[in-house]
Simulated scan of single mutants.
Amino acid sequence: MGAETFAALAERILERPPRLGPVRLVAVDGPSGAGKSWFAARLAKAADIPLVHTDDLLDGWDDQFTFWARLEEQVLGPLRRGRTATYHRYLWHRQAFGGNPVVVAPAAAVLLEGVTAARREIRPELSFSVFVTAPADLRWRRALARDGRDDVAFRAYLERWRLNEDRHFAADATAAHVDLLVDGAAEGFDDRYERLWPAPPD
């Protein structure tokens, strides 16, 4: 384990060659409640790059993995061609897409955060990939606190979601193929993170 600043990581990423057309696509993956959003927000700020959350493109709970065609059509496809991407977020309280459109320019790098963001089919076009992990009990508590719900129906959704993502990560071997494994349980940092792999230099 060792600490690295987000600024240093941003520099390393921007030195990588673009693989999604003219864009360096950076994926931040990991299970729910691991700390992906926290990590991605700070990295996006340090690198001054756009951030896309896969949760914004899910058409509800049952679209956990099948949203990818929508992401490809509305975000990845345009960026790959050097064009501006535009999409509407899924409004979970309305159970529909809507609100103001999100516009993502084909910047030097674009950050994609969410469960399956580093899935097998996009790996050849990733310039950098991160997997954030944390103990299961901590992730469970964070998920309940984040959504502000602890009713029977929500727990059932969450339990099914976690089981599905565990199966996905096992079949996809995501963590074994990323450039960086991050300790999402580490707290008290703002400008840096704790990495689990690769080991810090001597």
Rank of each mutant, 00 (worst) to 15 (best):
A7Y: 12
A8E: 15
E11S: 14
R12K: 15
R19N: 07
G21W: 05
V23E: 03
V23T: 04
D29H: 14
G30W: 11
A34I: 09
K36E: 05
L43T: 00
K45D: 12
K45L: 13
K45M: 09
D48C: 08
P50V: 02
H53I: 00
D56G: 02
L57D: 05
L58C: 11
G60Q: 09
G60S: 10
G60Y: 08
D62H: 01
D62M: 01
F65P: 02
F67Q: 12
E72S: 03
L76V: 05
L76A: 07
G77Y: 12
P78E: 08
A85M: 02
Y87P: 04
W92R: 14
H93F: 00
Q95S: 11
Q95Y: 02
A96P: 03
G98A: 13
G99Q: 06
N100Q: 09
V102Y: 03
V104K: 02
A107T: 01
E113Q: 10
V115Q: 07
A118K: 02
A118R: 02
R119A: 08
I122P: 00
E125N: 06
F128M: 10
S129N: 05
T133D: 15
A136W: 07
L138I: 07
R139C: 10
R139N: 03
A143C: 13
L144D: 03
D147W: 13
R149L: 09
R149Q: 06
D151T: 00
A153M: 01
Y157S: 06
E159D: 15
R162A: 15
R162M: 08
N164R: 13
N164G: 04
N164W: 10
N164F: 11
D166C: 07
R167C: 11
R167I: 10
H168P: 06
F169T: 05
A175W: 06
A175L: 01
H177A: 14
D179H: 12
L180K: 13
L181Y: 13
A186Y: 08
E187K: 05
Y193W: 14
Y193E: 09
Y193D: 04
Y193H: 09
R195Y: 04
W197N: 02
P198V: 03
P198C: 08
A199L: 13
P200G: 01
